[in-house]
């Protein structure tokens, strides 16, 4: 038992212990502990439950009250992690007045990444035909894919993606989840948040979150149990606890 716990700890890419985050006098995360290994981990919960805050803490851009976050054995936000963690914020963090390629070239230069990777990243998110379009003129889904492409630059070991598939066409959504799994198959940890419960089955592992707490943690099948779907399982867990 102890051995397997240690084994699990060794394989963890992200390790969060007793994390407390207070924003505007409100405890957004009242002491959360969890571990994330390689593979595609889904962080599911209603909007406002603290998903983005948790992801920001993993990237190291969130001011925390107490507790610890370790990524690849280093404290979150450590200088040595800055080119090993790819991050997509909820708003598409790309420049609206630049083209897709210009955005990618800029971030590639900041990361010190070869220009050849730019075209790979653009192809990976299926924006090759929009390469020279100004981002401001693209649809919301295309903009968030441009933002995702930036996170792929430099082949990071950890990808932290805050609702990357919101508002996308089902075909694209499926393609992106395939991309996440391809990345995970090459040994990366992909942490994806979503407030859409039907994305649950696309994950290797699920974390259900509500009001700043993880209320369930396991494979989609484990969490679903006897319930018809994850949404029903979510309700059962919440109402069972109340």
């Amino acid at each position: 038992m102890a051995g397997s716990t240690i084994q699990r700890m060794m394989n963890n890419v992200i390790d969060i212990r007793e994390l407390v985050v207070v924003r505007g006098g409100h405890e957004v995360l009242p002491g959360i502990s969890l571990a994330v290994a390689a593979g595609v981990t889904g962080l599911l919960g209603p909007s406002g439950c603290g998903k983005s805050t948790l992801l920001r803490a993993v990237v190291g851009v969130q001011r925390v009250r107490s507790g610890g976050v370790e990524v690849l054995g280093l404290p979150a936000g450590d200088r040595r992690l800055r080119d090993r963690v790819g991050y997509v914020t909820q708003a598409a963090s790309v420049y609206d007045d630049l083209t897709v390629a210009e955005n990618l070239h800029f971030f590639a230069r900041v990361l010190g990444v070869d220009r050849a990777e730019v075209d790979e990243a653009i192809a990976a998110v299926d924006l090759a035909d929009r390469r020279d379009h100004v981002v401001g003129n693209l649809s919301g889904g295309q903009r968030s894919r441009a933002s995702l492409a930036v996170a792929l630059l430099g082949d990071p070991d950890v990808l932290v993606l805050d609702e990357p598939t919101v508002g996308l066409d089902p075909v694209l959504r499926r393609d992106l989840w395939r991309l996440f799994h391809r990345l995970a198959d090459s040994g990366k940890a992909v942490l994806v948040s979503s407030h859409v419960m039907d994305e649950a089955d696309r994950c290797d592992r699920l974390l259900l979150m509500r009001e700043g707490r993880i209320i369930a943690d396991g494979t989609p099948a484990e969490i679903r149990g006897g319930a018809p779907d994850i949404e029903a399982a979510f309700l059962q867990i919440v109402e069972g606890a109340a």
Partner: peptide
Amino acid sequence: GSGTLERLLSMPM
């Protein structure tokens, strides 16, 4: 506001 600064500051910049 757009998050580009946050992204840049999470990079080696």
